[in-house]
Structure formats: C-alpha cells, structure tokens
Simulated assay, not measured.
Amino acid sequence: MRSLILCLLLTLSSTCARAAFAIQPWPEAAESLQMPPMQHWIGPARAERPFELCALYPHLRDAYWLSVNQGMVEEARRLGVGLRVHEAGGYAAQDEQARQLAECVREGSDAILLGAVDGPTLAEAIGQSPLPVFGLVNALPPEQVVAQVGVPWYQMGWRIGHWLAERHPAGTPTRRVALLPGPEGRGGNNLVEPGFATAIAGSAIELVETLRGDNSREIQRSLVQRLLTRHPNLDYLVGGAMAAEVAVNELARRPPSAPHSNPQPRAPAVLAIYFSHGVERALLRGKLALANSDQMREQGRLAVAQAVCLLQRPAASEAQCPRHMGPAILTLAGPLPARRSTLSDPAFRPVYRVEPSLSPTAP
C-alpha cells in the first residue's frame, strides 16, 4: 500500500510514473453481471531486459484501435521494450492475421499481443506459435493465451440496454430501438447482442431490427440510411462508435419541415456502445444521449505492462501479475472524466515500431 501511494503521488518520477493502474479483474463467466471490485496494481517500473513485443490488430482505421496503439506505444517506451505492430486489414482477414502470427516469430519477438479478428478460426495458428500469446481487447479462450487484457463486452451491451430499460419500464409506452453492433460474430459483438437483449427483456423497449456490417464509414452509413428509411418512427438507434457517428451526421442532414407542412418524423436518440473522438464530440454537443468507454488507451498500456510482468516473472501470483483484467467500463452522458485513458491525442498517428531502450524516459 505504501508503494502504491508513493507511485500515485510521485507522478513526475520516471520510476513510478504510470506504474500504478486501477484494474478490474474479469468475472468467471463472460455473461456475469457481478463484476469484481476495482483493485490497484503496481506494474513493472522498467523492463529487466529489452523484450520485443509483437502486437496484432484487426485494423488501424478507426479511433478505437488508434487509441489502443497510443497506449501501447506509451507503455513500451516507459518500460524500455520494443514493439512491432501489424494490422490485418479488417475483421474478415483471418488468413492474414494467421500469417502475421508466424511473422512475429520470424521477427524474433518474445511475445504476441493478439487483438484477434476471429478467435475460433485462429485457434490452430495460436496453438502452433512457440511464443506466449496474450489476448488484447477481443477475448480469447483462456486455454489459448497466457493472459489477457480487456473488458467483458456482454457488459458493454447490457449497460446500454439497462439505461433504456430503466427509462422505459414495462407498462409504459413502447419505444422502438434498432441495433447496429458492427461485424457479425467479430470482436465483442457476439457478447454485446445477448447482453443488450438481457437488459431490455421485460421492459417497454422493442428491438425492431439488428443490422450488422464491417466498421467502415461507407458500410455503416448504408446501414443507418436503410434503418431510417425502414423505420421512420424509430425512438433510439444503438450502434458501435462508427455507426453512432454516422447516425448523428445523417440525422443532422435531414431537411427541416416547411411551415404548415406535415412535420418530419421525430429523430431517434443515438447511443454508442463504445467510444471514439467523433462520439465524444457528439456527446459534448448534445447530439448523442449515452456512450460507453472501455478506456481503450489504458487497455493498451495495461497489455504491455502485463506482458512484461509475465515475461519477467512467469510464475508470479495473480496479485503480482494479473492474468485477466481491464479498466472499468464508463457509461457516460457527459464529458470523459480522464480523456487520456480513453482517446488518443488529436495529433497522434499510428506507430508501427518502437525500438527497445532501457535508459529511463520522461513520463
């Protein structure tokens, strides 16, 4: 406890800076709503040798993975370890990510931090890797990985649904909702949907349609336009960050009603399952009602710290090097409490290589 207090207070010290993390262990079951209490974990101060970490992302074309990237880069530099980043090109790129798993070995990496595009199809490639594999953001079966960092995405869906159900309980007028969770069966979407469905069960919320598609602006715009055409009297539109951004823009483009004419259908309120820079802007302008943040930049930091901790101490206890953890999920109707835990800086651009350096760096 004394060391935790010192590290929290001495934020200008290169030895302690960012070594103290607020973490939430994962529940035993992915569908659990009973989250363990928050804990404080003191991560490694500096790496004992210049480890090389190989990070594999589904893509780097949106704010989510860009923010994960900055967190990983920050922590790699703080710890003095090397980092190589590869992106698969999208959630349909299973073959490319399997090839990249082998590429990490050829590059001489010490460990792989895997943001999996599709865990089941990568099971064989993961099993064949001689390197320790750490799950990053997208959950993998525990038997496939040494450890993992992320949040339960069932909770991400449940929290949005619970907010709606509390405002529209059974016996009140029915409210029509559409869901755009992102790619089918990819990332955390296979857990978001049942979490959302559980939360709205027995309420006055009616899920009228679910449309799935890749997280590209063009695809999500097409899905949003289709929903608004099919359901002109929609009350809520719930989607991933890209879908929420597009929906806010599409609704802003609706022409105002002419005087004495029939009014335009009432615009649905937009809710975001996860966060982005565009989601933040819409939330602050009052164009978006609610959004979850799973603090993805902090997840990037935690993933690097966890990997270094277990590379240095493979037999460490759970308290010394937690195996299944993530930051708290924030459900917000207003500003982020700590922006640098969620979003990348405005000027940040993807970094694909960090050279190892065990000389101290400034925080």
Rank of each mutant, 00 (worst) to 15 (best):
E209A: 15
R18T: 11
L33G: 03
L290C: 08
V149F: 10
N189C: 10
S109E: 01
L122S: 02
R266Q: 10
I23E: 01
Q320Y: 06
R301T: 04
A241G: 12
Q148R: 12
E143I: 08
H40V: 15
P152H: 05
A291C: 09
T198D: 15
H324R: 14
R254N: 06
H162I: 02
S129N: 07
S293W: 02
G240T: 12
P232F: 07
T11Y: 12
N69S: 06
N189F: 11
T198H: 11
A197H: 10
G127I: 03
R175N: 08
A267F: 04
D118L: 06
R2V: 13
A258Q: 10
G240H: 05
L332H: 04
P360V: 07
A244S: 15
Q148P: 00
A328F: 02
L180K: 04
R167I: 11
E184G: 05
L122Y: 03
L10W: 08
P120D: 03
L136E: 01
N233G: 11
V105L: 11
N249Y: 09
Q34D: 15
A170Q: 14
W153L: 06
C54G: 05
D235L: 09
A63M: 09
A328T: 12
I200Q: 04
E31W: 12
Q306V: 05
R297M: 07
H260D: 11
L60G: 03
A252D: 13
R78Q: 07
Y57G: 01
V246I: 14
M325T: 13
A289M: 11
G90A: 07
N292Q: 08
G278N: 04
P181A: 07
P263S: 11
R175H: 10
A347S: 14
L8D: 06
E103S: 11
A29G: 04
H231L: 10
S293N: 07
T172E: 14
V73Q: 00
D110S: 08
Q220V: 12
A92L: 11
L101F: 04
P181G: 04
N189V: 15
E96L: 09
A243Q: 05
G82V: 00
R99F: 10
G108S: 12
R254C: 11
H168K: 08
L113F: 11
P25E: 15
R349F: 12
G119A: 15
F275L: 07
Y236K: 03
R175D: 08
